[in-house]
């Protein structure tokens, strides 16, 4: 201890400098450390505030979209349309059977030609638009006779009221002057084609 005190007495100016420098260094470290921590915290807060603002704006935009969609009853209409879609090959067969029966019920024979379906663009749902050509002939047309157009209108009404989404593109009626000879419909059938 005495040796140390002797050293301190000999190194008086050093001790004096240390007595000044040590508090200054501690003060500098304190201020620097606190400032850095504070600045980092403030930066973090501002980043969080910015993120919250962005989230709020994002949410607001999405809620506006929701409101517009609800106004136009998109969900209900989509559900209705989705329910009406003919589903796959089996659905097409069922629909074909249904149409044939309906046509027979109204006194028509039906000839159907399917075209190559095209995928509805921009959809995540695999919806194919299948072009088809429906040819309705009166069941007794082999004798060259015609039927009243009222039968065809009844058939069209039944096709329209069928839940399958059939989109009529062209309608051609041919008559003999005394009655309907043939009716041809070019249409597109909306088919839900689930992945195999």
């Amino acid at each position: 201890m005495k040796r140390f005190q002797g050293f301190l007495r000999r190194k008086g100016p050093v001790r004096e400098r240390l007595l000044v420098l040590v508090p200054l260094v501690i003060a500098a470290v304190l201020v620097l450390g606190s400032s850095l921590r504070w600045v980092r915290t403030v930066n973090m807060t501002s980043r969080l505030t910015r993120n919250v603002g962005q989230m709020e704006r994002d949410l607001e935009v999405r809620e506006q979209f929701h409101a517009r969609a609800r106004q136009t009853a998109i969900e209900e209409r989509h559900a209705e349309l989705r329910e009406r879609l003919v589903e796959g090959l089996e659905g097409c067969r069922e629909w074909l059977t249904r149409v044939t029966c309906t046509a027979a019920h109204h006194g028509f024979r039906v000839g159907i030609k399917f075209g190559t379906g095209s995928r509805l663009p921009g959809q995540e749902l695999p919806v194919d638009l299948v072009p088809l050509n429906l040819e309705f002939l009166p069941q007794n047309s082999s004798e060259g006779e015609s039927c009243h157009s009222a039968h065809l209108i009844g058939l069209l009404y039944d096709l329209e009221s069928d839940r399958a989404p059939l989109q009529v593109v062209e309608l051609t009626l041919k008559g003999s002057g005394r009655g309907l000879v043939s009716a041809s419909i070019v249409a597109r059938l909306w088919v839900f084609a689930p992945p195999l």
Binding site: R62, T72, I74, E75, H78, L81, Q123, L125, V127
Partner: peptide
Amino acid sequence: EARTVNDRMRIQALLVHAW
């Protein structure tokens, strides 16, 4: 949640608008 609903609605809207 909103994004999920949004995406679903957007797809629904596309189909409905196409129809």
